[in-house]
Write a protein that binds this DNA or RNA. Structure first.
Lengths: 175, 175
DNA sequence: ATCCTCATGTAACCCGTTACATGATTAA
DNA sequence: TTAATCATGTAACGGGTTACATGAGGAT
């Protein structure tokens, strides 16, 4: 059973512990959103589809009067997840970085170039602060999340340094 | 006139020199695809819309019997492009990196972790080779494309190094 | 001749976000 | 008591990819 893009995060998150749709969204925002995000508009319908396909089971566990469905992986779901994780297929690798695009076209308005780089740096500084926050408040029982966080931090720092150096260099060249 | 996402690359590419839809696609693939891509299915309809909005003008310049429409920016198009480049708005920053997602969930199948990292490295090594190819075969009169290429190369190298180091570390810890 | 590149386009589909709607529970 | 958080959902919309269709020109 081939997993759809969003099914990959959903099943992975459930494999890390039974969860509600709401919790899946929280975890995605807190942990993978840097390289893989998901919205409620995808998560809830996808959970239904996964249940139809027999990859997950939802159990009603309301909090008082408040409806609440907790999902578990079925053996088929676990198998599909493992198949995906071990398969040697072409990996999705998409990115849309408007800061980079503006820098690319910055010769159209050259006076703005330094400003473009500063804006890029600001984006990455905010990102770094978020990642550092996660780093602090999380106990890493699992290595996967730890590794991706470290790589995320490393790349972000690299970009910030590059922005700083480039800004300095461009300012020096101006004079 | 607010530019749609795809209109940003299209107008930028035309600002760098009058082009056909086909040429825009070639340039995008060769230069920005690392952080911003576009398909024919977007480019041709978008060029029509931009012409309706008066931001570009298409001129018929066939090659013999072969139809060919070359686009130029109108003053309004140039203005819209400059407005976008100078505006201080929230920047689109999206990414979907399946290699990272697999690494994140690699505790589900821990024996596979090293393999996941190798696959990630392979992706980035291919990417680096492509970027280095562009670096060689291109004369950089313009700084924007040069800067984004350098940053792309730097980040890619950083990721490759991280993968190598992490792989070594994990192998050492195994024993 | 044949194949690659140039060149333009569209239709079906997939996917995903945004905004909205609703309501219970808990913390301040 | 009021605001934040927990919790579930959907409909409209926008955007983008893939696959297909077509054909001319240039190179081998």
């Amino acid at each position: 059973m081939e997993l759809s893009p969003t099914a990959k995060v959903i099943c992975g998150m459930i494999a890390f512990g039974r969860r509600t749709g709401y919790e899946i969204k929280q975890f995605v925002d807190k942990t993978t959103s840097n390289f893989w995000s998901a919205s409620y508009g995808q998560i809830y319908p996808e959970l239904k589809r996964l249940e139809d396909q027999g990859l997950v089971v939802g159990r009603e566990e309301p909090t008082g009067e408040r409806a609440r469905t907790v999902y578990d992986l079925t053996p088929a779901g676990q198998a599909a997840l493992e198949e995906w994780l071990t398969a040697d297929r072409v990996l999705i690798d998409e990115s849309r970085d408007e800061g980079m695009l503006k820098l690319f076209f910055s010769d159209v308005v050259p006076e703005q170039r330094i400003e473009n780089i500063r804006a890029m740096r600001a984006v990455h500084e905010r990102k770094l602060a978020v990642l550092r926050g996660i780093e602090e408040q999380t106990r890493f029982v699992r290595t996967g999340p730890y590794l991706t966080l470290q790589l995320g931090i490393g790349v972000t720092e690299f970009v910030i340094n590059w922005c700083e150096e480039t800004e300095r260099r461009l300012l020096a060249e101006e004079s």
